[in-house]
Amino acid sequence: MYKRILVPLDGSHNAELALKDGIALASKFSAKLFLLAVADTPRIVAYGVGLGPKSNLFDDVTDRAQNLLDAAQKQAAQSGVDAKTILRDGNPKSVIAHDVPEEEKIDLIMIGKSGRDALERFLVGSTTDYVVRHAKCDIQIIRDRD
């Protein structure tokens, strides 16, 4: 049923749950996992002006994202699941909903419910909402049941 499963990671608890279920599904279907972290450059530019040299802030965010991906890849490997890590700059909504699914021919996105912060959710709706509305493949929305 599913051969190429995408899990976007942002360090949130629900994204961790999505990763756990993504690994389990990939193992069951002998699918390949695609682990994605997006360094949100428009936001960094919006908030980061005047905070110091731009490049340091970019490096910081990029390092954190890469660590997140490496840890997730290791977790997948422990369950015998092959995972590719993808680190991108840009707007998370379009990267998760359009760019990576099209490039990697993704058939299922496993995404945590409202991974982003409360303020953005209030203002423009969450990344998850956007992905559910706009992605062309199947999507599973994961949340903490407790």
């Binding site: 909402d129 559910v132 992605a135 199947d138 999507i139 599973q140 929305i141 994961i142 949340r143």
Partner: peptide, 13 residues
């Protein structure tokens, strides 16, 4: 349902 349920949802394209 996606917004309001506490259960995981699989949306089929």
């Amino acid at each position: 349902v996606v917004r309001h349920t506490d259960t995981n949802v699989l949306v089929i394209a």
